[in-house]
Amino acid sequence: MTEAALSAPVASPKVDRERLTAIGFVLPSFVIIAGVFALPLVLLLGVSFVDANGLTFANYKRLLGAPYYLWVIWNSLRLGLLTTLIAFLISYPAAFALARARGPLRSLLLATLFLPLAASVIVKAFAWTILLRSDGIVNETLIALGIIEDPIRMIFTETALIVGAVNIFLPFMILPIYAIVAQLDSRYAEAAATLGASPVVTFFRVILPLTLPGIIAGVALAFSLSVSAYVVPTLLIGEKYPTLATTIAKAYLLAREPGFGAAAGVVLLAIAIAVVALSARLSREPK
C-alpha cells in the first residue's frame, strides 16, 4: 500500500486544521488585495461606462475616436518603448561587467544601483531639471568641450523626458538581468567555443537564450513603469507631451470628468495587464 493511501481519509482532523490555519494566515492579506485592490479596479471599469446620462460608451468613443487622444496614447507608448529600449541597450552589457566584478568594486557598483532605486522619484526628476537647464551643467560641459557653441534648449523637450525616464527606470531593467547573469555558468560558453562556435554564434545561441528570463523580467518592469509614469513627464516636459497618465490626473483633479478619466485608466491598465500576461507567457515557454 502506498503512503498516500495510508494517510487517507483525506478529511482527517489534522489536515483540516492545517488548512484552516493556512486560510486564517492569508485572510488579512486577502481582504486587503480583494477589498482595496481588486474591487476598486472592477468599480473603475464600471465607472468608465458611465457619464451624466447614464450607461454609455461615450468615454471610450471620445478616447479612441479622436486623433488628439490617439496621439496621447501613442505618447505614452512611445515613452515606454524608447525608455525600455535605451535602458536595455545600456543594462545588458553592463550586467555582465557587474557579474564579473568582485570585492569592493562590486559593492560600489551595486550601491550605485540601489541608492538611486531607493531615492525619491521626485528628487531625481528635480535634479534633472537642474542638470538640463540652458545654463545647467550639461550645456556648460558641452560648450566647454567645444561640442556646441550656444546652449541648446533641453529641458521641456523629448530628449529631457527620455534621459530622465531612462535614468529613473534603469535599475528596474538591470537588476533582474544581473540576477540571471550572475548565476550564468561560464562553462556553457566554453563548451560552445570548444565545439567550434564563433563568439557571435555562442552569444546568440547560448548566452542570449540563457539570460532571456532576466531580459523578459527587466523589459516588463521597465516598460510597465515608464508607460504609466506621471512625475517624470510632468516635471521634464510638461503640457506639450500629454500622456495617458497626465490625462487621467487632469480628468480627475481639474476637469472633474471621472467617467473619462476612468476610461483612460482602463486603457492604461489594459496595457499593463497585456505586458504582464505576455511576459508570464514568454517566460513559461520551453527553450
Binding site: V36, F37, L44, S228, Y230, I248, G265, L268, A272
Partner: peptide
C-alpha cells in the same frame, strides 16, 4: 499591484 500603474490604482481607490 507592483506591476499596475499607480495612477490607475489612485483613481480606482478614490472611486471605491
Amino acid at each position: 499591484p507592483l506591476m499596475m500603474p499607480g495612477l490607475v490604482l489612485g483613481i480606482a481607490l478614490l472611486q471605491g
